[in-house]
Design a protein around this nucleic acid. Structure first.
Lengths: 137, 137
DNA sequence: TCCCTTATTGAAAGTAATTTACAATAATTA
DNA sequence: TAATTATTGTAAATTACTTTCAATAAGGGA
């Protein structure tokens, strides 16, 4: 039983073929995928998969922090598997390939300074880099 | 003639009542607004304003860097006036109020390290913080 | 100041994205 | 294995956004 299946079980959710298909596609993807893409790829694994189920699966996975939403300048909506302990995303603007990297400590000082300046209490942060990957350069 | 009007003129665009209404609403807002909200508030200033024009104005303003798009967890698409020289946004998760802050230098070291590790060449970055503002604490 | 050019606008229709309703199906637990 | 009920797919509904096109109004020049 893989990690995500345990997470689902513990949350009282069922492990279905549809969810398995969506998860498998996400696990094999190396760039953020939109619901339509997930459907197209997922259909190869689960012939009866529907777009509605893709949306519902993503909603559930996101709640359980198994998946993260990646935003882009114009269109938002790309989903990526959450790599444990890694928080930030770097996307290639040519091929779309995404890698995650840690970077919490680097931001600690910045966040402390911002809190002091603004009076806000910072709860979460969200950093996304965009560039060109080694192969596309 | 205000700054944004000059920017528009120099780009060969006309200063219209509709654009003025959208800009005025944005200037008075202290949190990111979605197109629908901009329409509702803008109608008080320009009775014939339409949603289509709100979309088109935002598109133009964004091209000219007068306005920036802010992304939120679920709903994407919120627009905020660009504060000159400031790059990052901090949003209160209770009242939605947003403040901007500089923070380029802080990230330079992080970005350099990520480039080295991943082989990517980082072009742009995008940082958004979420927390609770002084009044909502 | 008035006219002329043409960028800009709103209405309406079109397309795409996302959500909801509901009966049928399949995952789990006893 | 049977019973319970979460989950699914279909279809329809809603929302978000874009395009078309004729009417309007901004602003440069007479």
């Amino acid at each position: 039983m893989s990690t995500w299946e345990e997470t689902l079980s513990q949350a009282g959710c069922r492990i279905t073929e549809s969810r398995r298909a969506v998860m498998t596609v996400l696990a094999q993807a190396e760039r953020p995928l939109v619901p339509q893409e997930l459907l197209a790829l997922g259909l190869k694994l689960q012939a009866t998969l529907s777009l509605v189920t893709v949306y519902r699966s993503l909603e559930l996975f996101e709640e359980l922090s198994l998946v993260r939403r990646v935003h882009q300048d114009t269109k938002c909506q790309g989903y990526l598997l959450t790599a444990a302990g890694h928080r930030h995303v770097l996307i290639c603007e040519k091929c779309g390939r995404a890698v995650e990297f840690p970077g919490q400590d680097d931001l600690a000082a910045l966040i402390a300074r911002v809190e002091e300046r603004t009076g806000y209490q910072v709860k979460t942060h969200w950093l996304q880099l965009r560039g060109v990957c080694a192969e596309c350069q």
